[in-house]
């Protein structure tokens, strides 16, 4: 099992909804998190943010309500990131489901093209362990988008693997590197993030989808989002921008002022 306990940012975000029950009842269906997989991970104690399932709910809440949807400046809309994260079938990916995993060799893993089984995303204990640097709602919600984009790759016929690093400007070792396919803000209409052309003018890699979400969250959040969550979103976005792309990226995320 994972090590139970909530980070400060999980508690801060949780305090903004305090287990809004109608949302919990929507979330488990939208993310297809079933009792059969999540039993023992807080599915039967869904208002206890120390447990993995409520933490997954917390991250879903962030992705569902955390952006102000500034059409002029955001990379993409809430609906785009929701379609990547949520489990039901859309233009972004086929229907999937989420399951917890005790594996700590990955943050989460999109399993695509499974034989005689539905595709799914496994959420590893690194997303939930007390003391893990990634036990926070910003990372968890960003990872929803990242893994959702692997499912996008599968649906649209692309190889869902990362490149092995280090390579080019990607300084991370292992299967961690992607290309960054640049676009301007407003190049994609809200709701059109899933669309693509093969020349790279309209295209996203999983790390790119993740940092565009994290950066939208850090820079253009809804007013209620706690600053502890925003500081994490900015830091993680910039770390990934500097270390996960084979080519140079044209922007940094957030205000360089400390607070």
């Amino acid at each position: 099992m994972c090590i139970d306990g909530a980070s400060q940012s999980d508690k801060d975000l949780w305090a903004t909804h305090n287990c809004w029950w109608a949302f919990v009842l929507w979330q488990y269906q939208a993310y297809r998190m079933h009792d059969s997989e999540w039993n023992g991970y807080g599915f039967d104690d869904a208002c206890n943010v120390a447990m993995p399932y409520p933490k997954a709910v917390n991250a879903s809440y962030l992705i569902t309500y955390g952006l102000r949807d500034d059409y002029a400046l955001q990379w993409h809309a809430t609906i785009d990131y929701r379609h990547a994260a949520e489990a039901w079938e859309t233009d972004t990916h086929n229907e999937i489901y989420y399951a917890p995993s005790e594996d700590r060799s990955y943050l989460a893993a999109a399993e695509t093209g499974r034989f005689l089984a539905q595709d799914r995303t496994l959420m590893g204990c690194l997303l939930f362990d007390l003391g893990a640097s990634t036990n926070n709602p910003a990372t968890r919600s960003g990872d929803y988008v990242h893994e959702g984009w692997h499912h996008w790759q599968h649906k649209h016929g692309y190889n869902p693997d990362h490149m092995q690093g280090p390579i080019g400007a990607c300084t991370t070792s292992g299967s961690a590197c992607d290309w960054f396919y640049w676009h301007t803000v407003s190049q994609f209409n809200f709701g059109d993030m899933w669309k693509f052309t093969t020349d790279g003018h309209y295209f996203h890699s999983p790390n790119q989808a993740q940092v565009e979400y994290l950066c939208d969250l850090a820079e253009l959040p809804s007013g209620f989002v706690p600053n502890s969550v925003l500081i994490l979103a900015k830091s993680e976005a910039n770390q990934r921008l500097s270390t996960r792309f084979r080519n140079g990226v044209p922007y940094r995320c957030g205000d360089p002022r400390p607070w």
Partner: peptide, 9 residues
């Protein structure tokens, strides 16, 4: 999902 009690902040 079910809840035992709500941990609120």
């Amino acid at each position: 999902p079910s809840r035992r009690e709500t941990v609120a902040f």
